[in-house]
Each structure stands twice: as C-alpha cells, then as structure tokens.
C-alpha cells in the first residue's frame, strides 16, 4: 500500500516522531513516501530505514505557521491510500485539513495500526480505548512513542517540488519564545511537580533532576494556576498536555482524575507524596510515601551516581 507520510517539522527541524511514522507504515507493509514541508529535514528523512522516496516540498507558505496554507500546498502531493502525520497540534491540523479537502475519513491520536485498516486509539482521555476499522483512502495521526524507530540505514531518493498555499494568518507580535527546555510532550522522561511543592522556587529541584536524566519538567494545573512562574505549557492533564513517556515522576501531586487523564498511559509511573492515601498511588508502579524535601535529595544523588557510572 502506498503511504504518504507528512514529516513533523513544525519547530524547524525533523522531529524524531517522523521515523516512528515510517515504523508505523512499515508495520502494515506500507511503502512510504515522506513529504518534508518547506524542505526541512529532507536528507535526514531519506536515511530512515524503509523509506521509498522523499519529496522536499518548497514554497513561500512554509515560511509562516499557517497550517491551512501548508495543507493546501501538501494536499496535491498526498496521494497515498494512507496519509500519516504525527498527533502533534500541527500534525492533527494537517490531517484534519487534508482529510476534509479530499473528503476522506480522519482518525486522530492513533496508538496501534494493523492491516485492514484497523486502528486503536484512546478516547475520553484514556478512560476508554477505541478499536475501529476504516477503509483506505484515509488519514491518520499517530501518537508519539507508539511505534519503534526503524533505524537510519536508508538512502531514499530526494526530489524537490514547489507548491503554494494561501497564507491567511499574519503574525503581529511574538510574545514568548518556547522555552529552551525539553517539552513534556516530547520527552521520554517527565518529572512533574504539584501544589505540594509549596513554592515555585522549589521546582529548581525538579529542574536539577531533569538535567541529570534528560527529562522534561511538567506541572499539575494547581501548580500552573497558583504560580505565575510555572508556565502553562508545562501543564499535564485533561486541559493540559497528554504525555506518554517511558517514565513519569509525579512529585507533590494528588492525582486528580483530570491530571491522570494526561499521564496515566505512561509506561512507568513513580509517585512521591506525603499522603499515603493520595489517589496518585492508585496509578503508580512505584509509590514513595515521603515528603519531597526528604525524597528529592536522595533521588538526585542516586540518579547522578547511576548516570556517572
């Protein structure tokens, strides 16, 4: 089956999820062509194992972040029976727009794909799992970390095509740069703090630990709402971000259902909370009943030992 993969390049470089999309395509015997919006990451994309072609799609529209314009430019090239993107905000908007332009069904945030095409995806923020069948042609966005990266033994041919799209959004003012720190939705390890951290300054402990293991720092909504210093972009949960890291460490977070909605599908969950009855322990693989004041210094030194050995 012909598969069109739209590379995730929304932040100006090829996002690692792109290789996972190739993994998803290959798992159902698909032959993927990767479209690289704005030509970003084309040579890197061509080295992903299993890719048959790379199309570097150039055009003025890719200079602006107007996903509708990107969709106009990419749609004529998205000829696969299956169109795949990442389930990032831009990836979702791309498949939704391209799906509507082509009049084909769209499934978002898919975690498993098998021939048929059968898909699995979480609904109700992970409180239920949906199994559905959709016949090609269709468009699907895939949740990061759901498929393996097939490696970089490929050497696909790269062609260049110019396309245009109508930019309708104009930027008036940049307000804040995304932090240089790793984003919670991208990290393989996330350490989050809640209201139990007592003071935003105490998040420094979480930052220190995050640096040791290459983690991103997240927060509960109570932390984000209470303290201006804790950015909205860090919020994990129902009205924040959904994260699926290999390891999620919740510190001073009670584990309200809306918080669980954003992190309960993490592979492993560690909770540090002084209240033995905190609901977070209900989803934790490893629960530590202790105050963060006692637990974090030990965690920090244990992790540094581990990393330096």
């Amino acid at each position: 089956m012909e598969v069109t993969i739209i590379a995730d390049v929304a932040d100006g470089s090829l996002h690692p999820v792109t290789a996972q999309l190739v993994g998803a395509a290959s798992s159902i015997g698909g032959v993927p062509t990767i479209l690289c919006p704005g030509g970003v990451g084309a040579s890197e994309a061509s080295s992903i194992t299993g890719v048959s072609k790379v199309v570097s799609v150039e055009g003025a529209c890719f200079g602006a972040y107007d996903v509708g314009a990107w969709a106009e430019a990419l749609e004529p090239l998205a000829n696969g029976e299956l169109i795949l993107s990442s389930a990032s905000p831009s990836g979702r908007e791309l498949v939704a727009s391209i799906g509507a332009m082509k009049g084909i069904p769209v499934m978002q945030d898919v975690t498993e794909v098998s021939e048929g095409i059968s898909i699995t995806r979480p609904i109700y923020s992970g409180k239920a799992i949906e199994q559905a069948t959709v016949s090609p042609p269709c468009a699907i966005s895939i949740r990061a970390n759901s498929f393996d990266d097939p490696g970089s033994e490929g050497d696909a041919e790269i062609s260049t095509v110019s396309q245009s799209g109508d930019i309708r959004i104009s930027v008036k003012e940049a307000l804040a740069k995304a932090s240089e720190r790793l984003d919670v939705s991208e990290a393989n390890i996330v350490i989050s703090g809640g209201r139990g951290m007592g003071d935003p300054a105490n998040f420094e402990h979480l930052y220190e630990i995050s640096e040791i293991v290459g983690a991103a720092v997240g927060a509960s909504r109570a932390a984000v709402d209470t303290w201006e210093e804790i950015s909205h972009s860090m919020q994990v949960g129902q009205t924040g971000k959904t994260v699926v890291p290999s390891l999620y460490i919740a510190v001073g977070i009670s584990g309200a259902i809306q918080h669980l909605a954003g992190m309960r599908t993490s592979k492993y969950i560690v909770a540090i909370n002084k209240d033995p009855d905190a609901p977070i322990f209900g989803v934790a693989d490893y629960g530590i009943v202790a105050t963060w004041e006692e637990a974090l210094p030990v965690l920090k030194s244990e992790l540094s030992n581990l990393v330096s050995n």
């Binding site: 979702r92 939704a96 799906g99 509507a100 769209v106």
Partner: peptide, 12 residues
C-alpha cells in the same frame, strides 16, 4: 473524541 479534527475540517 479527543480528536481536534472538527475546527480545521469545518474551516476547510
């Protein structure tokens, strides 16, 4: 649904 398809789809 947790999808995020409707807004961009309607716009289109």
């Amino acid at each position: 649904t947790n999808s995020g398809s409707t807004g961009p789809g309607v716009a289109r």
